[in-house]
């Protein structure tokens, strides 16, 4: 959805480069297992797709002659270090096994939970939020939100399905969207363009 917006409108207005770069980092750290484990063709294709689209979006926003001029750097002020440092620290302490790939995987789980924050802050400062931007954020939130249903199903049907790091992070991630979803639903019901209160 985001690539569609950027390519069709030649603009990344209202999109946080910080969030996009954090997602690229999340996918790098999480999908290192592409090199040493195979789960299914679907799983591999989706991992490669996420990596490719994340990097493509960052490339457009940073280097495309037209698109990069629409990036509002002054408004996108969230500091990377405030998200990366606590997640890295937490991953070093709270993990299933203290190995490089496992710690990086855990770091990616924690970082994904909070990676939306720069985007949410930027949207709060934006007067006219594009429909595509609003839909993109809603879909991103719904993506992990729907996982919760899947986790309940898997917990009930699979014997060794215990993933508390993933569950807690996923619920926290979804909770961060709660406020956004509330206003998204209100505006959708009223058939109005999304506006977030300051």
């Amino acid at each position: 959805v985001l690539l569609l917006k950027i390519r069709a409108t030649r603009s990344c207005r209202g999109i946080s480069l910080k969030t996009q770069e954090l997602y690229a980092l999340v996918f790098i750290c999480r999908y290192l297992d592409l090199f040493y484990s195979y789960i299914s063709l679907y799983n591999t294709v989706m991992k490669v797709t996420y990596l490719a689209t994340a990097f493509s979006i960052v490339r457009y926003m940073r280097f495309d002659k037209v698109v990069r001029q629409t990036y509002d750097k002054e408004q996108d002020t969230f500091r990377y270090i405030f998200l990366i440092a606590p997640c890295a620290l937490l991953a070093l302490v709270l993990n299933h096994r203290f190995s490089p790939t496992e710690v990086l995987w855990t770091f990616s789980i924690y970082l994904e939970a909070v990676a939306i924050l720069p985007q949410l802050v930027l949207m709060q400062r934006t007067q006219n939020i594009d429909n595509l931007t609003a839909n993109y954020v809603a879909l991103l939130g719904a993506y992990r939100g729907f996982y919760i249903l899947n986790w309940i199903y898997r917990f009930a049907t699979e014997k060794h399905y215990r993933q508390w790091i993933v569950w807690i992070s996923g619920v926290a991630q979804t909770a961060l969207y709660a406020d956004f979803f509330y206003y998204y639903a209100l505006c959708w019901k009223a058939n109005q363009r999304l506006q977030l209160p300051a």
């Binding site: 799983n43 989706m46 996982y147 060794h160």
Partner: peptide, 10 residues
């Protein structure tokens, strides 16, 4: 190792 080592979710 238990099942947790197999990260099959995206």
């Amino acid at each position: 190792d238990g099942e947790w080592a197999r990260h099959d979710e995206l």
